[in-house]
């Protein structure tokens, strides 16, 4: 049985519900008055897709501006990025695009990109239309999902999609940082300080067209590089 370990970074404006989404998925719970994340929180979980176990190491980052300088620590070597915005806030949508630009500038290796519009339970206050979001997601070669962490709608699909994306990423390219193990016993992966050791890139194929090789790229256009 094959196991893939993928590092997922969750980015987005403050208050869009990054932590709530992750906690909804990992612990299936929701708190209304959660305090802002301090720095970044680490979660891990496993998803079984067909006969492949995908282990996600999720870095839930703080959205506040003062932590921005820390973000590269978390998106460096990430295999997937969840970029979250709040559908009732145009500002959060724009801020999310800023994150995408930053990722495109600084991350060379291919990455699963997933745009998430949260808070659909508040859709009567919607400021960002579904079409607008889908169009944007397409333009950067990302998938798009809408969800509500509060009402537990569509959250599972997001992570499922990330996992499938990681599997595709693993199948399609050799230039990735994914760790693949053949046995199921990977509980001691954390122990090897995966952050610190050089990651196992197969061949030297660091093409600069990282955006082309994103797993979801059906209608990918390389943006300014």
């Amino acid at each position: 049985m094959k196991t893939i370990v993928g590092k997922v970074v969750v980015l987005g404006h403050q208050g869009v519900g990054k932590t709530s989404t992750v906690i909804r998925y990992v612990e299936n719970s929701f708190t209304h008055h959660i305090t802002p994340t301090v720095g970044a929180s680490f979660f891990s979980c496993k998803i079984l897709i067909d006969d492949i176990t995908v282990k996600l190491q999720i870095w839930d980052t703080a959205g506040q501006e003062r932590f921005k300088a820390m973000a590269p620590m978390f998106y460096r070597n990430a295999n997937a990025a969840l970029i979250v915005f709040d559908i009732t806030s145009q500002q959060s949508f724009e801020s999310m695009q800023g994150w995408v630009v930053e990722l495109q500038r600084n991350v060379e290796s291919p990455m699963v990109l997933c745009v998430v519009g949260n808070k659909i339970d508040l859709s009567k206050n919607r400021e960002v239309t579904r079409d607008e979001a889908i169009q944007y997601a397409r333009s950067i070669g990302a998938s798009y999902h809408e969800c509500s962490a509060m009402q537990d709608q569509g959250v599972g699909v997001v992570f499922d999609d990330v996992a499938r994306g990681l599997i595709r990423l693993f199948g399609n390219t050799t230039d990735h940082n994914l760790k693949v193990y053949d046995s199921e016993n990977i509980d001691n992966i954390m122990a090897s300080s995966s952050e610190l050791e050089a990651t196992d890139t197969g061949k030297e194929e660091t093409v600069n067209l990282s955006i082309r090789s994103i797993a979801h790229g059906n209608t990918v256009k390389p943006k300014c590089c």
Partner: peptide, 17 residues
């Protein structure tokens, strides 16, 4: 003060400057 005021620290391991 930081620990008391940040309930969110209870949910997971955190890394913070």
């Amino acid at each position: 003060n930081l620990v008391q005021a940040s309930e969110s620290l209870k949910t997971a391991e955190s890394w913070t400057p």
